[in-house]
């Protein structure tokens, strides 16, 4: 490890903090009182999309404990008396694990495959949250709104994913080769 200049160090920190910061932003955006039809309903699922997208190339920058903290924060902010706190954390951790263990089907493949992978994982996430919320509040919750959310977020994915991939792939100036991310040139989406 050779001594880096201050800028390079800041740069590397920035790159390491970026996925977490983007995730935090989307967790907070969940609460924004946006009144766009359909889209505002799907906001609570966007953090899951971010977790999926960043787990594709740089899972080491979204460590498990961070996902745990973000998921719990999301559940606390989203609220609802009696709703389980930590179910989103469970979902995030499982999404990351699923992506990491199936990299060869998801990384460096046509976009359509990635989209399909996201469809499956997001469906799992929605069902998980629905199941635990119903169990914890012990009421039969109508699954239709959750399914609407799911459909919207699946449609939004092709719009948002390339954007996030761009953010992720951006190479800052003056980075020594050793401090570059592990993502190979062919690994990013779009």
């Amino acid at each position: 490890m050779r001594a880096d200049g201050l800028l390079a160090m800041l740069d590397r920190w920035g790159r390491w903090a970026l996925p977490g910061a983007v995730l935090l932003f989307f967790v907070l955006l969940t609460l924004a009182p946006l009144r766009a039809p359909y889209l505002s309903g799907a906001l609570p699922l966007l953090p899951a999309l971010v977790v999926f997208q960043f787990s594709l190339a740089t899972p080491e920058r979204l460590p498990g404990p961070l996902l745990l903290a973000m998921g719990i924060l999301l559940d606390l902010l989203l609220g609802g008396p009696g709703a389980p706190v930590g179910v989103s954390a469970l979902g995030f951790v499982l999404i990351r694990a699923a992506v990491v263990n199936n990299r060869r089907y998801l990384v460096g493949v046509p976009f359509l495959f990635q989209w399909f992978g996201f469809c499956l994982l997001a469906l799992g996430f929605v069902i998980l949250v629905w199941f635990f919320t119903a169990l914890w509040t012990w009421t039969a919750i109508d699954p239709m709104p959750a399914m609407m959310q799911y459909v919207v977020v699946v449609v939004v994915y092709p719009l948002l994913a390339p954007l996030l991939a761009r953010v992720r792939a951006r190479d800052p100036l003056n980075v020594p080769d050793e401090s570059r991310g592990t993502a190979q040139p062919g690994e990013t989406t779009s």
């Binding site: 609460l31 609220g79 919750i141 709104p145």
Partner: peptide, 14 residues
């Protein structure tokens, strides 16, 4: 109203 807490399970605001 600074925040919505509207999801598939909650209807509220901050």
């Amino acid at each position: 109203l600074v925040g919505d807490s509207v999801s598939a399970y909650v209807r509220g605001a901050l």
